[in-house]
Design a protein around this nucleic acid. Structure first.
Ligand code: DGT
Ligand code: MG
Ligand code: MG
Ligand code: ZN
Length: 581
DNA sequence: GCCGTTTTCGGCCCGACTGTTTTCAGTCG
């Protein structure tokens, strides 16, 4: 059972406990534990094997009770407390809880007072006008729930970054168009550069909000809520969008609030309380004896919020309550890598396999982007559907690389590379002598994703220890929103990569983002080198670098952790080859 | 259920909007 599944069990425990009327703080503890497990780079199974129950209890937010539940889950396949809860509370209510506007109290009331146990029954009851018999519910409530059920049925889930960015540009343009916005900025998960985006959150400062709200309404196909300072709408794309309007004085604290994450804000606000302060979206205030907010001491600009608490400024990408507040207090936050630090791209495809453009076209596109070097890394033969290269065609490609190099001049260095398949048994899909003549060998898994953890780990280790591999490409094999990562033990893989001097790729394709933020962090903390590569199959894909830098920043990476921040290609190659060639 | 440069008991973030309410609970950001 992988960490995502364990987290899902804890989430379910939280949801059902909540409907059952449990203490909300206990429910929150389950949710916090679920988040912690989901963020864990190492499979819990491996953690337990090495450190036992104590290793689990070491994790913040996981104590004796939850640790025991997790062990129980891994040993027996279920959590006793969850099994009992499922006997008592209909599991169909989990869907009811997912309906917007329905929380634990209403779900419970539907169930206890109307015998509703799932969404279909809720829909029938709403149509039959039965919900209005409940206290605090009327005809409008029924209509609202029916609309929410429709959205739930159509529900599109989360979005990839480029799709969210495209809609965000439209929203920002429309708000700007009103001329009433003094400042405006994308907030929420998009500002934090999370790997997928649930909805758009936009902060605006203005002295009047009516025309801004009207502009947002005009973009939407459905209005979920509309007040003086907040609007919640469904855009025509189906994406949800929340707009918050504040006045200029509140900009900093409002931006902090709306950027989140929720877990970060809750932790920061808790720290403020312990310092006799209180934070809301309007500022940082001294806390009076009676518990109300007193003198305002900060909040015009975002950095003041941190400063007021004695903290270093925490960049949005780090605001996930993963230790950033403690690091900011200790002055040990990383100096995060930036896009301008990256000097080249080490994973580029061309028409020699499944890329869309020639070597020279890709080279010129890279020059336009200021790159000092790119590695031409087409697929090896095993990936037949991509027209992958065998040793003979690989050697032919070198002549074209040389020709392209002469043609584009010395503005950029074209490196001979390959993305060689790691075959089922961990051997490489190319003879060793051919690989030895290359500048850059990226090795990746493209088949047999279903191997168990031990088999896949051994397969990756064999490739890493071959002495022929410089970079492990898209190390988990995941496709965002489409394919889960394959099972393997990152700890052993990272240890082997460090020992062999093999770098780990942060694949910057927004369909992949692989390594993920948490794994990238674990990798450099394990002493591994990283590279950020686009896996470009088209000139415009070279711009994916931004997304890779986002991941690196979310993974606490500094410039020194990423090899392709080296401007000089010869020095870069020396670093890439170090330890195994 | 977790946690502790105040603490091993008693806190645990804080406010906008909605619907139904005559003063607020529930839900959500
Ligand atoms: N203080 C506080 N802020 C919250 C709470 N819930 C949400 N926020 C803030 C922080 C969030 O980043 C921001 C936007 O809320 P969203 O629900 O859209 O979450 P976010 O954008 O982080 O993730 P998403 O990708 O949309 O799921 O609002 C909360 O319970 N308390
Ligand atoms: Mg959001
Ligand atoms: Mg939102
Ligand atoms: Zn690949």
């Amino acid at each position: 059972m992988d960490n995502a599944e364990i987290a899902a069990h804890l989430e379910q425990l939280a949801d059902l406990s909540e409907i059952a009327g449990e203490n909300p703080f206990k429910v929150r503890a389950y949710r916090a534990a679920a988040a912690r497990i989901r963020d864990l780079p190492t499979p819990v199974q491996e953690l337990l094997r090495e450190g036992g129950l104590e290793a689990l209890e070491q994790l913040p937010g996981i104590g004796e009770r939850i640790a025991t539940k997790i062990v129980q889950l891994l040993e027996t396949g279920e959590i006793e407390a969850l099994r009992k809860l499922r006997e008592r509370v209909p599991v169909g209510l989990l869907d009811v809880l997912a309906i917007e506007g329905v929380g634990p109290k209403k779900a419970r009331a539907f169930w206890q007072q109307l015998g509703i146990t799932n969404v279909d029954e809720l829909e029938r009851a709403a149509r039959a006008g039965k919900l209005r018999t409940l206290p605090g519910m009327g005809e409008r409530s029924e209509r609202k729930i029916l609309a929410a059920i429709e959205r739930w049925r159509a529900h599109q889930g989360r979005y990839l970054l480029p799709d969210a960015e495209a809609d965000m540009r439209r929203v920002l343009a429309a708000i700007r168009e009103t001329g009433d916005a003094h400042r405006l900025e994308a907030a929420g998960s998009l500002r934090r550069r999370r790997e997928t985006i649930g909805d758009l959150d936009v902060l605006v400062s203005a002295s009047r909000s009516d025309r801004i709200m009207e502009a947002v309404r005009a973009l939407s196909r459905e209005v979920l809520g509309l007040g003086e300072t907040r609007a919640a709408v469904v855009l025509r794309s189906g994406m949800h969008c929340d707009v918050r309007v504040v006045d200029d004085r509140s900009w900093g604290s409002a931006l902090h609030y709306f950027t989140g994450s929720k877990a970060h804000s809750v932790a920061l606000r808790g720290l403020a309380r312990s310092q006799g302060l209180t934070i809301n979206e309007y500022g940082v205030f001294r806390l009076r004896e009676d518990g109300t907010a007193g003198e305002r001491i900060a909040g015009d600009e975002e950095p003041e919020v941190f400063l007021a608490l004695g903290l270093d400024y925490i960049p949005p990408e780090l605001r996930e309550n993963r230790g950033e507040i403690e690091a900011a207090a200790a002055g040990t936050l990383p100096v995060l890598i930036e896009r301008a630090d990256v000097c080249g791209d080490l994973h580029v495809h061309t028409t020699w396999s499944d890329g869309r453009e020639s070597i020279e076209t890709m080279a010129r596109a890279a020059i336009e982007r200021g790159h000092r070097y790119i590695a031409i890394t087409d697929h090896s033969a095993r990936l037949a559907m991509t027209g992958g290269l065998d040793a003979k065609r690989l050697r032919e490609q070198w002549r074209e690389i040389e020709a392209a190099q002469r043609s584009v001049g010395d503005a950029i260095r074209l490196l001979r590379g390959i993305e060689v398949d790691i075959l089922e048994d961990g051997t490489l899909d190319m003879p060793a002598d051919a690989l030895a003549e290359l500048d850059v060998v990226v090795a990746s898994v493209h088949s047999h994703f279903g191997q168990d953890l031990e088999t896949m780990t051994a397969r990756l280790l064999r490739a890493i220890e071959s002495g022929r591999v410089d970079i492990l490409g898209h190390p988990t094999g995941r496709l965002l929103l489409r394919r889960d990562p394959y099972a393997f033990d990152p700890e052993r893989v990272f240890a082997a990569a460090k020992a062999a001097g093999v770098a780990l790729e942060i694949n910057a394709s927004p369909l992949r983002l692989d390594l993920s933020d948490t794994l990238a962090k674990a990798a450099h903390e394990a002493g591994c080198a990283l590279v950020i590569s686009t896996d470009a199959h088209h000139p415009t894909h070279l711009d994916f670098l931004r997304y890779g830098v986002d991941v690196a920043r979310r993974g606490w990476c500094e410039r020194r952790h990423v090899l392709n921040t080296e401007p000089d290609p010869e020095r870069l190659l020396a670093r890439l080859h170090e330890g195994h060639r």
